[in-house]
């Protein structure tokens, strides 16, 4: 849609921008503003969780012990590694190394899928242990209602996070296709923007992991 026009230096820019610098900064700031909304989107459910956790500390700790901390930890490693690969991909993009960039993007994609795979496996184990509220929740111990509350939040938080992963992976798949054709050779802003988003999703998990899995003592 928007026609591009050329300026004296740098790649072509969309019609309404003066130069590449302006377009680049606008795009980056736009993503940061979007991430600020995401902070509050996730923040709301974190606040709700911590309100109930403060009220039912012991019950929530007991419930937390029923999660698979090992899978959570492995997934943290996977996601942090994918953050590294995406940061390196951005770096490669800035240095015009197309092949390297595509390779790192593929690595990020694979790690993202691995995360989802582990997560799905973990959900399956949770299901087998009758820990899925509204489907097969059954709790032998005391305070089943409050315990269920923990698992409701566990599923909402991890599913919303996983949804963000799925969106990220879909976008990334399309971007790899574009990158192979050289679409980002002149201007790798899109890869940078994707990197910001991906790092943010990683940060959410950095907080989710201790919140759900580690607060058990």
């Amino acid at each position: 849609m928007t026609e591009l026009h050329s300026t004296s230096v740098g790649p072509p820019v969309a019609h309404h921008f003066e130069d590449f610098e302006q377009e680049h900064e606008a795009n980056m700031l736009g993503m940061w503003a979007f991430l600020a909304t995401e902070v509050l989107f996730f923040g709301a459910v974190f606040v709700a969780f911590y309100i109930y956790r403060s009220a039912y500390a012991d019950i929530f700790k007991e419930a937390s012990r029923h999660l698979y901390m090992s899978i959570g930890a492995i997934n943290t490693v996977v996601l942090l590694t994918s953050s590294l690969t995406v940061a390196l991909a951005v770096h490669a993009g800035e240095h015009k190394a197309r092949r390297l960039m595509v390779g790192l993007m593929v690595a990020t994609l694979v790690l993202g899928l691995a995360f989802l795979g582990f997560k799905a496996f973990e959900y399956y184990l949770d299901y087998q242990e009758h820990l899925v509220p509204a489907f097969n929740f059954a709790w032998e111990g005391a305070n089943p209602a409050q315990t269920q509350l923990f698992f409701v939040f566990y599923f909402i938080m991890t599913l919303v996070h996983a949804l963000h992963m799925i969106i990220g992976i879909s976008v990334l798949a399309r971007m790899i296709w574009q990158a192979r054709r050289g679409s980002y050779d002149q201007d790798s802003t899109a890869v940078e923007l994707f990197g910001l988003y991906w790092h943010f999703v990683d940060i959410v998990w950095i907080f989710l992991f201790p919140t759900l899995y580690l607060l058990r003592q």
């Binding site: 923040g43 709301a44 459910v45 509204a134 305070n143 269920q148 409701v152 909402i156």
Partner: peptide, 27 residues
């Protein structure tokens, strides 16, 4: 975004009857 998350919670509670804000279920 806070409203968005709140409405998600409402929709989940109403659909699955899991009691996020329901005092009878600890909410």
């Amino acid at each position: 975004p806070v409203l968005a998350m709140t409405l998600v919670l409402i929709a989940v509670e109403r659909t699955f009857h899991v009691g996020i804000f329901d005092p009878a279920l600890g909410g």
